[in-house]
Amino acid sequence: MPDTIKYTETELVLLLKERDQSAFGYLYDNYSGALFNIVLAIIPDRELASDVLQEVFVKIWRQVALYDATKGRLFTWMMNIARNASIDVLRSKSYNNSQQNRELTENVYANAGTTVTNTDKIGLRKVVHSLKDEYKILVELSYFEGYTQDEISKMLNIPLGTVKTRLRNALLQLRELVKN
């Protein structure tokens, strides 16, 4: 990167809101790798994930006016856009057709928690992989596949309260794993 200018998060957001091209270039250079990590953990197909990443940056660019710095960090906001965009693709018909061996939406009860395969080395997946099974399923369904706690409760036939507690415990353990 020949660009040696470094922005603080506040400056960067301000410039993005002013539609500054070099700020956008900086944003991409700085965060594309980390966001690609987020996308790839959900969409293992690199080509498809690249398309998703492009879409994610378009969304970030067009929605940056909605970002509220008082509510949280810029990356957290972008990460959520990346995750939601990825899950949207994951759940789309075309994606499911391309994944011939899996029918996630139609047979989710049977397949719940078992879709973790070749992406185990990527990002949070790597961490989640070392959780115990009953935690792993919950994180998989909620974070990687975007199911609500209510949906998960029905899928796994576990009371909603249990899903809630267990998911929270799973995330606390995940936190410790990420920290180390």
Binding site: S32, G33, A34, A49, L53, R73, T76, M79
Partner: peptide
Amino acid sequence: FALVIEQQAMAGAITPPPAVKENLM
């Protein structure tokens, strides 16, 4: 915790194909 997750994602950054930036621009 947001920072922990951010740092974890940054540390595990995977460089996307250069075409993505070109297309975006």
